[in-house]
Simulated scan of single mutants.
Amino acid sequence: MKHIKHLFATAILIGATGTSYGCNLKAHSNEKITLYTEFTEEKPSEQFVKIALLLDTSNSMDGLINQAKAQLWDIVNEFTHAKCGTDLRPSLQIALYEYGNDNLSSHEGYIRQVLGFSKDLDEISEKLFSLTTNGGEEYCGEVIHTSLKQLDWGKNADDLKMIFIAGNEPFTQGKLDYKDAALNAKEKDIIVNTIFCGNYEQGISSMWKNGATLTGGEYMAIDHNRQVVHIETPYDDIIIKLNSKLNSTYVSYGAMGRQKKELQSVQDANAAELEEVVVVKRAVSKSSRLYQNSSWDLVDAAEEDATVLTQIKEKDLPKELQGKSESEIKNFVKEKKQEREKIQKQIQELNAKREAYIAKNQKNEKGELENAMLSAIKAQASKKNFTWNN
């Protein structure tokens, strides 16, 4: 009987501790219970924030797409300061789907994965700018289900996993019931947030609110055609000039190096086409820890793994480094790194002054989509013990 009581007490202890999770578990990793240590799994060394954007690209959604293009950098800049536990900084990954567009395959439910989870900010920007609108059928339940099935969401309970679906047609359209998709998401610890582009009450009556409620997500209604009024500051031009200098510190290598470096400039130009202030916000993102390009930039690659400089083949080097000795290559990369860090620090310092200027001269600069997303992100991240510190 004593043995049975002991097992029962152990089971309760395991159950009580096993259901408590959050990104702060890493901070308490030394607190082990010997009764079941052998059955616990080692916590992953990297924490993720995974966001899937499901955007309606039917005819009426041009305003939504433009807001997404412009507000991407605000979302990235917000996560620059996110913390998980005592000192862990989470990695941000974004995936992109479009739905409700006649140009898409009817067999696929007028749904297309534009980009799987990626931390490549230039690639995410490129894919957003590639979106075009055309009339179609908007199947919300099916696009949620598709993103759950196709994307690698991982199995770490400490990761923050969110879907943001935006559109303006009834949430009930399509053969696949949105309730089934929402329950599937909840089972996988994925929060579905819904953004109705139109009247708040209309979104409720067309089940957008219910679609969010089922997973503990937030329902929001926005005016997707509202023009965001940005305030210019005395620091914008300086940051833009520093952004150009920042680009010169990137040293492309490998088969994709040149193309990726060109993509960097193209996305700067895309941002400039929207508005000058978007270039500024993108420059701030590029000065942050989340803008990391080790797959094509020697400076970031060497920071990640110093042996890359001794192992790289001559043909994979940029022309200015071909024929150079190992020590010359190392010194060149070191100088570029120092130059980059100096420029990034200048941008961050100027941005702090810029934000203070905006706060003083305009109460609210944020766009409709950005407001909606940041509100949901902060509320849901706090439940997993994320904090925001500079």
Rank of each mutant, 00 (worst) to 15 (best):
A306R: 11
R354E: 15
V228H: 12
L242E: 01
H6F: 13
S265F: 15
A359N: 07
K245S: 09
Q311C: 04
T133L: 13
N199A: 11
L35T: 15
A272Y: 07
A271W: 12
A185R: 13
Q380L: 02
D56S: 00
H3E: 15
A27H: 02
S265P: 13
L246Y: 07
I191S: 04
W73F: 07
N210M: 01
N371M: 00
N225D: 13
K260G: 10
N351S: 12
S285C: 15
C197V: 11
E42F: 05
D223R: 11
K384I: 02
L246E: 07
I238A: 08
N101R: 08
I190H: 04
H224A: 14
Q344M: 05
W208G: 03
S244Q: 15
V266R: 10
D236F: 02
Y253E: 05
S147C: 08
F171A: 07
N390T: 01
T132K: 13
Q311F: 04
K281A: 12
S206G: 03
A166L: 01
E232C: 12
V76K: 12
C84A: 01
G85A: 06
S105I: 08
A356E: 02
G216K: 03
A68S: 13
K149S: 12
E320S: 09
E41N: 04
T34L: 05
N156R: 00
A376R: 13
W73V: 03
T10H: 14
L92Y: 01
E78I: 12
K353V: 00
L25Q: 10
Y253R: 11
R354Q: 08
I239D: 04
G198H: 11
F39Q: 05
A52V: 05
T233H: 10
M61A: 01
M220H: 14
C197K: 11
L369W: 03
I65W: 07
L13K: 05
R282F: 04
G367A: 11
L148W: 08
N364S: 06
L35R: 09
N193T: 06
V143S: 08
N199W: 14
F79Q: 03
W73R: 04
E304K: 14
E349C: 03
T19S: 05
I12R: 08
E41Y: 00
K175D: 01
S58F: 04
V229I: 04
A157M: 04
G18N: 13
H107V: 07
Q267F: 09
I12M: 02
T215Q: 05
E349R: 09
D177Q: 12
H145I: 06
L298W: 14
E41T: 02
I163E: 12
L131T: 14
K363L: 08
K32V: 11
A68R: 06
S60R: 12
S20K: 10
H81T: 06
N101M: 10
E303T: 02
I358Q: 09
E304N: 06
V266A: 10
K330R: 08
H145R: 04
E341G: 09
Y219A: 11
I204M: 07
I75V: 10
K245H: 14
Q322R: 11
S60K: 03
T133I: 05
Q292F: 03
I195Q: 06
S29F: 00
K260E: 05
P318V: 01
N168V: 09
A381S: 00
N168Y: 08
K366P: 15
V192W: 15
G257M: 01
